[in-house]
Write a protein that binds this DNA or RNA. Structure first.
Lengths: 185, 185
DNA sequence: CTGAAATAATTAACATGTTAAGTTATGGAG
DNA sequence: CTCCATAACTTAACATGTTAATTATTTCAG
């Protein structure tokens, strides 16, 4: 390991194998796990979007927020988080930045001062109008390469999958602990 | 917006609509974009894994690394990054931590001091053995709820999708810039 | 009306994602 | 052999993911 000492023996067994699944491990083949497949598929698409967004000073999440805002007059922060699929803390930080850049505007709700509403500004709409064509272009290329029909089917399956898992009980985080690895302290 | 001033007029139009798709925006319905669907599907699964991992002091990425290492004797860092689907910088940081916790061990490759190999320790294997049952249990519940056959089909489609997109030209980051928002500087 | 519980949003703290830059070691041209 | 391009990691810097703690308001039991 470069940047350290102790150059010991050698080995260089390259290990081109991916999932050896040793004789004592009955676990699923690691590289084929569903979360991994979903992650890889998503990255396969996103890597085509990021460069364009980046050239316009936007991250994927900022783009999601602007897109969500462009479809409504104004929304409360909590609802926006749901629409853009972001957690509250992430949204809070990003809105602070987008507001400072003049892409969104915030207002308090007079009837409940805990709440705030967010809306996209003209500058924000202009940015969307500038980037949208590239975004559409990428999407078209993806649909063309994989097949529009297949793509629609894939999306339908993903929606079904999400709906099916939504019926599972909440994982919470308290029910199956045993503490044996000592990394909790 | 709480934590700020300027309580102006009111509005409270709640906006239960999701994708209004205003009369001037021809873009795809935002909430149904493929990247979003993949993100939601992945989160639907991961939210059931995270609590258990967390109870054992592991993050999702650390778990991927340990699982990958458990399938081989030892691997070079670059190959491990590919196996665990992590970028180099993320892997560097995580390995530093896992090594400090005694879950993995590193060695330099004598024939090329730039390279380093990583292997899982006995302590690391014990941790995997402890967590694996919970992981398998979650996976079984997911498969049961969505259907094992459907799940297999979904994974196959995801693999096909990734393969199809791999044939697209690299996005690079220089080919369709026009610079209109001044963030390219 | 008062104070505890609940709600909306933000802040804090730590881990990873992502791109750029830096470091050490190889390898090859001349 | 020397110098430079490359390669393999690591470090740096900034943005987001994730969970916990805080702050400001509102709600509601009593």
């Amino acid at each position: 390991m470069p940047r350290r000492t102790t150059a010991t023996s050698r080995r260089a067994s390259i290990a081109t194998q991916r999932d050896a699944a040793g004789p004592g491990e009955p676990m699923r083949a690691f590289s084929r796990s569903l979360p991994m497949a979903l992650l890889r598929a998503r990255e396969a698409v996103m890597r085509h979007f990021r460069p364009t967004l980046r050239r316009h000073g936007l991250t994927e999440q900022q783009w999601r927020i602007l897109r969500a805002l462009s479809s409504v007059d104004d929304v409360e922060v909590t609802e926006l988080a749901r629409m853009a699929y972001l957690l509250g803390p992430s949204l809070s930080r990003i809105l602070r930045d987008l507001e400072a850049r003049g892409l969104v505007a915030r207002r308090a709700v007079a009837t409940d001062l805990r709440r705030g509403t967010v809306s996209i500004t003209a500058k924000g709409r202009n940015l969307i109008a500038t980037v949208a064509p590239y975004s559409e272009s990428v999407y078209a290329r993806v649909a063309d390469r994989y097949g529009a029909a297949e793509l629609a089917r894939l999306q339908a399956m993903l929606a079904d999958f999400e709906a099916a898992l939504a019926t599972l009980p909440d994982p919470d985080g308290a029910s199956e602990a045993d503490g044996e690895d000592g990394s909790d302290g």
